[in-house]
Nucleic acid binder design. Structure first.
Lengths: 337, 337
DNA sequence: CAGCTGGTTGAAAGCGCTTTCATCTGTGGC
DNA sequence: GCCACAGATGAAAGCGCTTTCAACCAGCTG
């Protein structure tokens, strides 16, 4: 019924061992043999049985995506990362499993342990804020499990992918400055996230470079959610003088800001410019469409997975790939009235 | 190093065959032996190697979650389903893989075929709108692959989970009627989705039961996204007389409606009541918080997976489980001014 | 030209489980 | 009290790959 390696071997006139070598891209097979085997595999539409490969080869062709769906409000962001990872896995016939974890739970490591012991993934992908959670990272090192990180806070010796968020934030604030804004507020995210710190640093850097001192009242702590953005907006719009522009650390909070402006009868962007960060689908769905920093999340997931898979094969550079950001200038920003 | 079945057998004073029988919950093992084996497994913290079980037992302990991330705008909904499925898998030591597909792509079946041929999942879970996509379902039947559906349109002989959406929609519209609204508009979803049809049917049913004829202008076609809700709102609010309440087929569109009201200076709920469907996190994040129908997506994912796993073991009832809905009455609705 | 080397290839022994089949034990029917 | 029989258990043969090890075959070296 099922085509086995033996069938391919027979068709190609070689031994199963040779077919196996071809499948695993070993380099001690002569080119002519290699071609014959590849042809036979294609002709028979051969699909190696994953469990047999795993059992004999002591690897699973499985990677696990870890995320915190509790401290990470934006399921859209995670969904995009996941899609990217899947795409990379697909290309290499790996499969992906996912594991939601909660940094708050005391048994995070135990849950991770059970994942690892039960399924033996060949490697893992960490997403923020898990990337820098010490107990988790320590566990992975202890078990010598390869992993790649998406946007880790500490990038030394880590493989994965990152974007220069500080520089991106600075560029966005410089855009607001170039429109003529001077009283620019900032709503931060959760302090435990690198994203929050980088974006605030970029904001301060741009302001300082423009020779402006930041009024402490203009920086409000948010939590990456619509609601926290909404509340930060209420607080900022009560100020006198009011800010003419607000840079929010993510799009969800920017949406909340726009909403709070509407509540007190201010119009965006005529009375208040609002800029966000991430470019989630919501950004284009808002009214007015949101000026924001585009973070290529899907692409980042794909790169992280590709980096991991490369390193699993003992190839690859094992570095932290930097992806470029871009500013999406839409209708939520304009020069101050 | 690793504890194998043989080690457990030795510790329990039985043969590996018996340990295997205990693991697989076969019923031809004496109770005393069973206990001894279970104790030994626990004492040694034995974790059977999945690939060995798969190879010998001809099953993979793997299920695949299929979704369409193209025609299904709400990544939140999918994320919740996914979490529920994971929870059920976890409990039974199954693992889950995910596969995004696009109904629009001609090669959907080919992509599914490659998933099945490469990974041999023991079963699948279908989410809307894939649940009723004929080529997909036909393929699964042809391959005799077990599957469970979440909210299928045709429930006969299908195992899975569903909610009576029509009844829920009717209840929501009845709530609006009870507040005193008479001119109630409805924004539909994508016509290919059962959700869209059921919700509209519930709306019409409630209106008819109240003895009201539905002005055709009050029913606007949307597409489940914020933007389509926003545009439907613009259209509805231009009507004269205006509707005093709108029931949107999902929360995203309800958010768009609220936004469109703001644009023309109408306040929700004083000038316009808005109700949604699904109760995604956004519903609570909006201002005002959205009155909506709670659909327990996470729970539904969990139930679908549990049903599938039961049926894989040859147990279970193999039916379509009905979950209850509830109305979340929040601040976006009030009696007409 | 014998001996060596390095590159190719195949035979065969597992990897850690499941499952068949045979064996063994205790039970009830006559 | 003996035999047939059902239930409980173990021995052993795989499941479909990978990998070690040995064999083989040029092509060189001295």
């Amino acid at each position: 019924m099922r085509i086995r390696i033996e069938d391919v071997a027979r068709a190609a006139g070689v031994s199963p061992a040779t077919v196996s070598r071809v499948m695993n891209e070993e380099n001690n097979v002569s080119e002519s043999t290699r071609q014959r085997v590849l042809d036979a595999m294609k002709a028979l539409d051969y699909r190696p049985l994953a469990s047999a490969r795993s059992l004999a080869g002591n690897r699973t062709f499985l990677i696990a995506l870890l995320y915190d769906n509790n401290d990470n409000p934006s399921s859209t962001y995670l969904a995009e990362i996941q899609d990217g990872v899947l795409e990379a896995c697909d290309a290499q016939r790996y499969s992906m499993m996912v594991r939601p974890l909660r940094m708050r739970d005391a048994d995070l490591v135990r849950r991770l342990d059970s994942l690892v012991s039960d399924h033996h993934p060949d490697g893992l992908i960490l997403t923020p804020p898990l990337t820098d959670f010490a107990p988790l990272v320590a566990f992975l090192h202890e078990r010598a499990l390869p992993f790649a990180s998406v946007s880790p806070q500490h990038g030394e010796g880590v493989i994965g992918v990152a974007m220069n968020e500080q520089q991106a934030a600075r560029a966005m604030v410089e855009h607001l400055l170039s429109l003529g804004h001077r009283r620019i507020a900032h709503v931060t995210g959760l302090p435990s996230h690198g994203a929050s710190r980088w974006r605030e640093a970029g904001y301060r850097e741009a302001m300082a470079a423009a020779g402006l001192t930041v009024d402490p009242a203009l920086v409000v702590q948010g939590g990456f959610t619509f609601t926290t953005g909404f509340e930060a907006g209420r607080q900022l719009l009560r100020l006198d003088p009011r800010p003419t522009a607000v840079f929010a650390a993510n799009d969800d909070m920017a949406a909340g800001l726009i909403w709070s402006a509407g509540e007190v009868g201010l119009r965006v962007p005529q009375d208040l410019s609002v800029a966000g960060f991430d470019d989630v689908p919501l950004a284009r769905q808002l009214w007015p469409p949101l000026t924001t920093v585009r973070q290529p999340s899907r692409e980042m997931g794909k790169i992280a997975a590709a980096q991991l898979l490369e390193s699993l094969r003992g190839r690859g550079t094992g570095e932290l790939v930097q992806v470029p950001f871009s500013l999406e200038l839409r209708q939520s920003t304009m020069p101050p009235g």
